[in-house]
Amino acid sequence: MFKAKSFLSVLIHLLLMAVVMVALIVGFFYYYLPSTTNHGESIAVPRIEGMQLTDAEDLLEERNLRFFINDSSYNSNLAPYTILTQDPAPEASVKENRKVYISVNMKNPPMIKMPKLIDGSVKNAELILKSYDLKKGEITQVPDLQQNAVLKQFVNGKEVKPGEMIPKGSVVDLHVGDGLGNTEFEVPEVIGMPVDEASVLLVGQGLQIGNIIYVQGSEEPDGTVLKQRPFAEVGAKIRVGELVDLWVAGEEPVMGID
C-alpha cells in the first residue's frame, strides 16, 4: 500500500509538472512574446522625403520608429538637412522600433573643379554647367570676332580658370563674344563703284553686306552704287563684322530659273 501511494504521488507530481510546463510554454509563446514584440501588428512608414530632419525625427518618434543617416548629398535647390531618400519606402509595413535609413542634403556644398567653358558656345556651356550642378548666371556680350563663344567665366565677380575649385551649385557668369570685334577703321568709300566690286571690297575688309536697295531713274549706269550706310564721312569709324547697306542704280536683277 505504501508503494502504491508513493507511485501515485510521483505520478501526480509528474502530471502537475507537465501541466505547469505546458502553461509556461503557452504563456511565453502566446502571451508574453506577442505582448513584447507586437506580434501580428505593423506600422506604416510615413513619407519623410522632402521634410526637414527635425520634423521627420518627431514624426518617426510618434510612430515608434527610428532613423539612421547612411548617406548625404548636396542639392543647391533644397534647404540644408532636407531628407532626400528613405528606406523602407513610404507606406511600407514594419515592426515597431524599426530603423528608417535616410540620406540628407548637406549644409555646405562640396568643392568641385571648374569645368572648361572657354571657346565653346553658350549652349554647350549651359549643358556642361547643368551636368556639374552649376548655374548659368549673367551673359555679357563683349567685342570679339568669335560670335556667341565663351571668352571668360566668373564666380562671384572673380574670373575662374578651368580646374580651379569652386562650391558646387555656384552661379557662373559668362563673357561672350559679340561677333563684331573691337577693331575700328575708317568706313570704306564704295559710292560710284559697281555693286559686285563694292561687295568684294567690303567683305574683304571683314564687313557684311546688309540691304541692297535698287533705285530706278538714276543717270548712273545700272549696277552702280549710289549711296551707302554708314556714310564714308571724315572720321567715321566702323568695326569688323558690321553691316553696310547699299543703294544701287537700276532694277533689281531677276534670278533665272534653270
Rank of each mutant, 00 (worst) to 15 (best):
Gly241Asn: 04
Ala92Pro: 06
Ser6Ala: 15
Pro253Trp: 00
Asp119Leu: 11
Asp173Tyr: 03
Ile257Lys: 11
Leu78Asp: 01
Gly137Lys: 06
Glu197Ile: 03
Asn105Leu: 08
Tyr32Phe: 15
Ile212Ser: 02
Leu24Ile: 11
Glu61Arg: 15
Lys99Phe: 14
Lys168Val: 00
Asn182Val: 09
Lys161Ala: 14
Thr224His: 04
Gln205Pro: 01
Ala236Ile: 03
Ala23Tyr: 10
Gln141Phe: 12
Val150Met: 05
Asp178Ile: 08
Gln147Arg: 15
Thr140Gln: 13
Ile257Tyr: 09
Arg63Tyr: 14
His13Met: 13
Lys113Leu: 13
Ser6Tyr: 12
Gly250Val: 00
Tyr101Cys: 11
Val20Gly: 06
Gln86Val: 04
Asn38Lys: 12
Gly206Thr: 02
His175Gly: 00
Leu78Arg: 02
Phe2Gly: 13
Val244Asp: 03
Asn211Phe: 11
Glu186Trp: 07
Glu252Gly: 08
Val215Met: 06
Val234Met: 10
Gly50Gln: 02
Val244Lys: 02
Glu186Pro: 12
Leu151Arg: 11
Phe185Ile: 05
Met17Tyr: 09
Asn156Pro: 08
Ile69Asn: 02
Leu207Gln: 09
Gly223Leu: 02
Pro221Arg: 03
Arg63His: 15
Arg47Asp: 15
Leu207Lys: 05
Ile257Met: 12
Tyr101Val: 14
Gly210Pro: 02
Thr37Ala: 09
Ile43Cys: 03
Val26Gln: 09
Lys123Cys: 03
Pro188Thr: 05
Ile238Lys: 02
Asp144Val: 01
Val248Gly: 00
Asp71Glu: 10
Glu57Leu: 07
Ser93Met: 15
Gln86Tyr: 03
Ser199Thr: 15
Arg229Pro: 06
Thr36Lys: 15
Val190Lys: 01
Ile166Met: 08
Leu16Ser: 11
Met51Trp: 11
Val142Lys: 10
